[in-house]
Design a protein around this nucleic acid. Structure first.
Lengths: 341, 341
DNA sequence: CTGTTAGCGCCTTCAG
DNA sequence: CTGAAGGCGCTAACAG
């Protein structure tokens, strides 16, 4: 087996190609780049053949060094095990590839220090743009980066950072959920969210919820956060007599998972004892009890949009900051059938 | 807003630091690298301060270009939406970061052509090592890459490619599953797998299954693949009288998802009509019916091991090819309670 | 159209 | 211990 610690040096370089084809490096460079129009057919063919024979691959690092274009996009993700993030990332990756970019993903595990490090790291690799799906503390670093490259926020805002962002139209989604619950005869709604923790989308959802509940005399609304107390809190919600049929509204997939767990611990009959509607649409929603009604986010599309925002900026667009709000889609399943006993 | 298409050029470079600290670039370079022992305290401090004042970050691209070390690891994933892959990737990423490496992830969406492109791409970025979790067609490319850098296969082998690999001890896992089913009184086991498609781990699981069924007179075993016929095939399995209580054995999380879907379509009473044990342990397993019994893979650990294999090779280890087989862990839930009606 | 000449930012001999 | 000089692989003016 080879000694990789010293390897690399053997790779075929532009000079090799040039010599093999008996042309100058510049011509090879032109062939590689978009300047092929400036080459005679004869020479182009010689180069093409030399490249094929030698198995030459241009070194992106070197190109990047020279041109300042690495074709690398960075993405900062708070929690790589959150299906929502994965889905968005999938959209981003696909769009990247279609445009000849590659994606470097950094998972912060919700840790601020890791966010710092990753930010520094991405910068050191000369990424051309950054997609951020974390809390975005380290405002200074972020600002500095944003001076050097375009930036787009996904699902969460960062205060005092003027950048494009793509996310869900939260008020609209809340409206859809409450309309649906109301239609199905639920009166007493408990919003379950992950701890707010300064996450803008969570905060928005809670405040929209509160505001809209105010406007709907038929509904009563309360809200809690996931955590070790969740089961007890749900029990108390279910046991306390209310104005009528009860339903949970889970603010994302993680909350839905936790809530369903808790309901099972409470020996609830899913979902005859209590209704449930959840943001995000995970593949197991149909399998639980009578199936969980969902408000699906167009995650792939959102990821693609995030990349396209970046691309526009990279192409020189310096227009006003854009905010893209996507609409959720209601997918009705058994958990909001409404015929509660 | 700035013009990013032209930007970059403004970043502070090693020369800036050198001038600011009134030393030579070489000294700054030594400071950055591990040669700090060769610097006087006085000069080191001047440099340190200059770096801080200017907010200097070494350019990894340039370093990589010169030294052939990019601190970049590539990972090729067949399906980024498969929770197993994500879990492994999370392990890899964490290990990478702990050792100062970064991870470039490429998702092939199970497409051979994309695998090709991504392979070429990763090479062009001078990654130092590669983790492969795809079918690994394009043997030539892979061989060529493997001459240049260490390679480790995850969960699947590639014929004629002598490289380290980490995966599950499949025969052992099958043994655990069958033991458990037998203990619980099931006699008629249907293995549900994704289409084999040349995926070595799937093939291994099926052949282990067949071989071990032979050895167990108390069990009857058959197997099918997921696909549009799945529901019909399950129905036929359930309707055909057999030697005794029936159980499904899903060969991975995807198969478990599909099978559970199908069982619901068939109006099965989960899991009183039929038992179920599944490889992988997804977070929703406890939520379905009486809960799905799982054989969990130590995914994080497997990812970390994959990276450590790479690291050893990078550090010069040229010993024999290693194969790391991890053990699954049985997690018993309601789906194999066994008291079938 | 084609080749020559400088570097991009950094590391690494090789002399002081 | 420190600095000067050359080059990693590639691109971008310049000249022909």
């Amino acid at each position: 087996m080879n000694d990789f610690s010293a390897a690399q040096r053997s790779r075929v370089t532009m000079l090799d190609v040039a010599e093999h084809a008996k042309v100058s490096k510049a011509s090879v460079s032109r062939f590689i780049g978009d300047d092929r129009a400036l080459l005679s057919d004869a020479i182009a063919q010689r180069i093409e053949q030399a490249i094929a024979e030698l198995g030459y691959r241009p070194n992106q690092m070197a190109r990047g060094l020279k041109r300042g274009r690495t074709r690398l996009i960075g993405m900062l993700v708070a929690d790589i095990r959150n299906p929502y993030s994965i889905a968005v990332m999938h959209g981003v990756e696909t769009a990247c590839r279609q445009h000849g970019y590659s994606l470097v993903v950094c998972n912060t595990d919700r840790d601020d220090e890791q966010e710092r490090q990753h930010l520094a790291l991405l910068r050191s690799y000369n990424i051309e743009g950054l997609i951020v799906n974390t809390l975005g503390h380290h405002r200074d670093e972020l600002h500095e980066l944003h001076r050097e490259m375009p930036l787009v926020l996904v699902d969460r805002k960062v205060e005092h950072l003027e950048s494009d962002m793509v996310g869900l139209n939260n008020p609209q989604a809340i409206d859809m959920a409450l309309n649906h619950l109301e239609e199905r005869g639920y009166c007493d709604v408990l919003l379950v969210t992950e701890p707010l923790d300064g996450t803008s989308s969570r905060i928005e959802r809670v405040s929209s919820f509160k505001a809209q509940i105010e406007q709907r005399p038929a509904l009563r609304g309360t809200h809690i956060e996931t955590g070790s107390e969740l089961t007890a809190q749900l029990k108390s919600f279910l046991d306390t007599p209310g104005p009528g049929p009860k339903a949970l509204f889970c603010a994302n997939g993680i909350a839905a998972l936790a809530s369903t767990h808790a309901l099972r611990e409470l020996k609830c009959n899913l979902f005859d004892d209590v209704g449930l509607i959840a943001l995000d649409d995970l593949d197991w929603y149909p399998l639980v009890g009578s199936g969980i009604t969902a408000l699906a986010q167009p995650t792939t599309e959102m990821g693609a949009s995030a990349f396209e925002c970046l691309l526009k900026r990279l192409r020189g667009d310096d227009g006003a900051v854009r905010t893209l709000d996507f609409s959720a889609q209601l997918i009705v399943r058994g958990s909001t059938r409404g015929n509660l006993r």
